[in-house]
């Protein structure tokens, strides 16, 4: 147990740089999403906004929340949780979008 613990923290030396870089990208993406919303793409607008939001949360999950350096268990767990949400949305919309 402890071996696993040491592995996941000591291996990666803490540095500030990467986080500031990620933050800059997040800022940029925020700018992009606001700018894009100004232009009327019609139906694609929502899709674009959501895609950018997904990219942003991916960055937060991977870097800020250290998912990158965690063991496989953590990644599987996140996968299971997201899968549950996706299934719920998909099945719920089997009722609504085909009405």
């Amino acid at each position: 147990m402890n071996g696993e613990h040491l592995e996941s923290t000591v291996e990666h030396k803490p540095t500030y740089g990467i986080y500031i870089l990620v933050w800059l990208v997040l800022m940029m993406l925020t700018g992009v999403t606001v700018a894009v919303a100004g232009i009327n793409f019609g139906n694609i607008t929502v899709a674009t906004a959501l895609t950018i939001a997904i990219i942003k949360s991916y960055l937060v999950l991977t870097f800020f929340m250290h998912l990158k350096t965690e063991t496989a268990t953590f990644k599987i767990f996140v996968g299971v949780a997201l899968l549950f949400l996706l299934i719920s949305i998909a099945l719920l919309f089997s009722d609504y979008s085909f009405l």
């Binding site: 299934i87 719920s88 099945l91 089997s94 009722d95 085909f98």
Partner: peptide
């Protein structure tokens, strides 16, 4: 078990697909 919930609701008038 997480994917069958709406069988409690067959009479509410869901879409045929559902």
């Amino acid at each position: 078990g997480s994917m069958v919930w709406a069988h409690h609701m067959f009479t509410v008038g869901m879409s045929e697909t559902a």
